[in-house]
Write a protein that binds this DNA or RNA. Sequence first.
DNA 1: ACATTAATTATGT
DNA 2: ACATAATTAATGT
Length: 238
Amino acid sequence: MGSVLSQKTFPRLDESLLTHMPPFSRLEKNQIRTILDQATSRRYEAGAAIFEEGLPAERFYMLLDGYVRVVRITPTGEQVTALHIPAGQLLGIARALGRDTYPATAISASEAIVLSWPMRLWDSYVADYDGFATETYKTVGHRVGEMNNRIVELATQQVEQRVANALLRLINQTGRKVSDGIEIDFPITRQDLSELTATTLHTVSRLLSGWEKQGLVESKRKRIKVRDPHALVVLAQT
DNA sequence: ACATTAATTATGT
DNA sequence: ACATAATTAATGT
């Protein structure tokens, strides 16, 4: 029975949290219940590290709300953003990649709500729960595809096309439709964009203010809204 | 075609 | 008031 000695101070997690998340969507209610009971929930403020590159991968995570950027640190200390992860996806799934340390650092781009499980449960989840493996490998495949595209971009395209593409990806994956365009719905600085595209924040700043004058884009501090995605697509292909 | 440096201005707590 | 973000110009590779 519910003892006062319980260490869990969190309210009981609701099953509806997971029922619509792809890795769990095919599961029965009671299966989700046991999964939830094994989970720990935590809230991260913007900019907090959820796990760090190179550290032993002790847990895997499910992002319930917010956005996370996956970042790698170069030997010289610069950050390179590999990709952004929207709510509803797993992260820190080193196990699925055959690793026992995290391949990158995960930073919450906005406030984020995260569930996590000890990594030892991974194998039993894969074995026991139908759809868990296939769905997660689907997203893994999608992610490596994205990263491959980015590598090709970095090698072949010029800066203007790169940031145009980066913006397009951001509004596709993490965009929120508003009245006069699509807005990236987490705070993003020019510094962040430059880390995504391997340039400087100055170049990004110039490009953005140029596009703003052409009515292509609108931005306030830490907020970027794309008013004319198609024009960006055109730009990205020239 | 882009980075770097530096100076200036705007914006959020 | 202070720190952080963004712009702008000048100079360098």
